[in-house]
Design a protein around this nucleic acid. Structure first.
Lengths: 209, 209
DNA sequence: TAGATTGTTAATCGATTAACAATC
DNA sequence: TAGATTGTTAATCGATTAACAATC
């Protein structure tokens, strides 16, 4: 499964966006699209779209364009969205609940196996059909259930402790909402959602308007 | 207030991160730091750090380094975090509540003036001291209270309608969690938090590990 | 003063765009 | 076949890194 050619991060960050727009087109019943038309829709140049896609293979047909359905599927495969990931949410506050219910509703590839909270008081609660467990059971749960992905929605100061536990348990990927940059071994992947960075960039944009 | 020199988006995206680390250092009582030491901490090259900062002015001192406190303040100013932004949250679901309480707690520069919901049933509820209003009152509220920033936490299909209303009311910046790319006039700033894009990038990283 | 470290220019690297031959 | 549009190479552009003179 190793990629022979290294794909730049810029390209990877664009892939989910392609997929999102292609999903829309598919839903609207559009069958084919040219890089030019997709360009107008998505806001990248046609040239860039073709470059990006050709990192992974020739998915189009000269003189015709791209099959929307086919391209959607290819990109889904490239992203690894052709399998299911058992997922836990760690942190049963408002954000944890929001993310658990978002995933349940919108991300079919990620199935919520359990929710965990650092405080033990919420133990044995059930959130939308998912059991809430105590943090102490996290490690065993991940191992016993083959959980690959964890969503961290605990406050800043607990982020690293939670991450350490997840790593010990053999987690493969972490979706991190905890506002700290986690120290992780190389074999664990992380995607950070730094709320404050995003909001502060907005403040900057507003300045010279 | 117009920036004479155009600053690239890559630089802007790094500024909040600088500020975050400098804030940490300040809290720990560190008084000065060299670009080399900051580099090791933050993970950008020392050269890049000096380049980035010198887009805005010479904040350091040869042979010494940068004053942590001073640099923190300078970056805060650059980002526009030296003033207060009246803010509304539109969408009173779990995510809306999570973001309202996050902002209240962590983002002193953004003061939550009101929360709005598309359904009218939550009207006159109070969330952590903030009044929840009906969507119908949004436009007038923004105008009457000089609200500059709106956080959109409604589902995908309502995103554009909400944005249109905000624009009509004269909003200046939108922090968008609604998973659609909003159509906005040029004078309105937007920062998108596309949850699914972020999660799907994580899936990609996990593939060849 | 000597040492350290910035500010800034120049060199390199990588990513985007343009161009066009291949081909459906 | 003619027209359209891809795949891919070459040219351009921009961002990062290296180097070093300025100076505290």
């Amino acid at each position: 499964m190793k990629q022979t050619k290294v794909i730049s991060k810029a390209v990877i960050k664009r892939l989910p966006r392609y997929r999102r727009y292609l999903g829309e087109l598919k839903k609207r019943g559009v069958e084919k699209i040219s890089s030019k038309d997709l360009s107008e829709l998505i806001g990248y140049t046609a040239s860039q779209i073709r470059q990006d896609l050709n990192n992974f293979g020739g998915f189009g047909q000269q003189g015709y364009g791209y099959s929307v359905e086919n391209l959607y599927n290819e990109i889904s495969n490239i992203l690894g969205l052709n399998k299911e990931y058992k997922t836990v949410v760690v942190g049963y506050g408002r954000l944890g609940q929001a993310m658990a219910s978002y995933i349940e509703k919108n991300e079919k590839q990620f199935s919520i196996a359990g929710i965990f909270d650092v405080s033990d008081k919420v133990e044995n609660e059930v959130f939308k059909g998912t059991q809430v467990h105590a943090f102490n059971d996290l490690k065993a749960f991940i191992r016993d259930n083959g959980v690959e992905v964890a969503v961290i929605t605990v406050p800043r100061d607990k982020g690293q402790v939670v991450a350490d536990t997840l790593v010990e348990a053999g987690i493969k990927g972490i979706w991190n909402f905890s506002s700290v940059d986690l120290e992780l071994p190389d074999n664990v992947c992380v995607e950070n959602v730094h709320m404050s960075d995003s909001l502060h960039a907005l403040a900057y944009y507003m300045k010279d308007k």
